[in-house]
Design a protein around this nucleic acid. Structure first.
Lengths: 135, 135
DNA sequence: TTAAATGCAAAAAATTTGCAGACGT
DNA sequence: ACGTCTGCAAATTTTTTGCATTTAA
């Protein structure tokens, strides 16, 4: 990741320790739910309030600075915005990984079929990860 | 759709008027949120309670009889389970349509890259529908 | 200095639960 | 008749809001 402080500035969000924690956690864990974020941050920053986490998640989402990943059968997780990518969920351990897949042909075909102008795609593949499969 | 009553029986859920309404609405509208379902049913069935809608959605989801569609930036909608398919969302009017796309190659590639055993896919394409584009 | 961010507590929204009575099989 | 379902009200859970105080720029 770049510098967390720079990232915030670029997105015209004021730099506060709370926000640096949020970015830091997301950078470390890649995908976290609101509650996971809150609990993680509280360890290093016990005074943070859940309301602040919510407010900042919403603020950062409005700036397209972080993204919500809506996961089947699970709570949403949040990630730092990066190049567009898809997600793979392990149904056993709940882990979510990024994967870079080319959806060009697929969205082109969809655009043809539906006559929509496609602007975004959200793909989540679910299955069993190698580690869980082994056990 | 088949017969709503048959569908319920097949999935070993008792047939009640409330459940028939839910299935009927979903069959008619394809994708509805909890609140939309509740409001729609209340018109024909004023005594139904929101708790009943929730209980039944959950019961039907457990039987894999209806599915939750988690839509970016929107509330979840529910649909009757059918052959696996993807969704196209209009970001302007909020409409959701089904689309049948072949994700075989894509999931095969993903399986290779990640070494996951892929079992499900959830793809939502977002854009602008022809009607909204026109206006 | 000043607008914006924080933390708290309270409010609102979304979902679940317990239970008495009604209903489906 | 039996076990399940319904509707209600209450309880939980999740998210948002208002406001006094603090803080970043």
């Amino acid at each position: 990741m770049k510098n967390a402080e720079m990232l915030l500035r670029e997105h015209q969000i004021k730099v506060t320790p709370q926000r640096l924690s949020i970015v830091g956690e997301l950078d470390g864990h890649v995908h976290m739910s609101v509650e996971e974020l809150y609990e993680a941050i509280k360890k290093k920053f016990p005074s943070i309030s859940l309301a602040t986490v919510y407010k900042n998640i919403n603020a950062m989402m409005e700036k397209n600075f972080i993204l919500e990943v809506k996961i089947p059968n699970k709570k949403s997780k949040y990630e730092l915005a990066k190049a567009s990518h898809s997600h793979v969920l392990c149904q056993e351990c709940g882990k979510v990984e990024d994967i870079s897949l080319d959806l060009h042909d697929l969205t082109a075909k969809a655009a043809n079929m539906t006559d929509y102008k496609i602007k975004e795609d959200a793909l989540i593949l679910s299955g069993v990860c190698p580690a869980c499969r082994a056990s």
